[in-house]
Amino acid sequence: MRSLLDYEVYYRLPIKEWVPTQLQVRQYAEASGDFNPIHLDENYAQQAGLGGVIAHGMLTMAQVAAMLTDWIGHEGTISELAVRFENVVRPGDTIKFYGYVKARMENCLILDLEAFNDKMARVLSGLATISVNP
């Protein structure tokens, strides 16, 4: 079986596609306890200058984490995940997540992460450190 440490620098992870729905945003509000009205109340979000409700940043980050854990399997763990939310994500958007191996060390990998919406605006950028199990 291929070990995580066999992946070369510049290896690209399988692309993940995700389309959030308003129902999912509501479910996430309940599961996370984050009931900020910018995610749930269309009028409030309009008045706040956001042009309508937006998905939780943490819901988008959860998709990034899922993409990583799918790829890692049981061969390692995420030891650090850092993201910046660069543009809003709205229910109905098609979001594509990209990752590539940026650096490889003795027992860890550094991955570069990005996500774009269907208008090709970058909604997220980030960096992950994966510890590879000995």
């Binding site: 599961a31 996370s32 306890g33 984050d34 900020n36 009205p37 910018i38 409030y44 706040a48 956001l50 937006i54 939780h56 940043g57 943490m58 980050m61 959860a62 984490a65 899922a66 990583l68 854990t69 995420i78 650090e80 995940l81 850092a82 993201v83 910046r84 939310f85 809003v88």
Partner: peptide, 29 residues
Amino acid sequence: PPTLVCTLKHAGFPGIQLPLPGMIHGEQK
């Protein structure tokens, strides 16, 4: 799920609600 640790179901601040309604999330590590 790794990001489960970041739910808001914990540890409020005395006298102030964070995030306040309307605040947006800029970065997370």
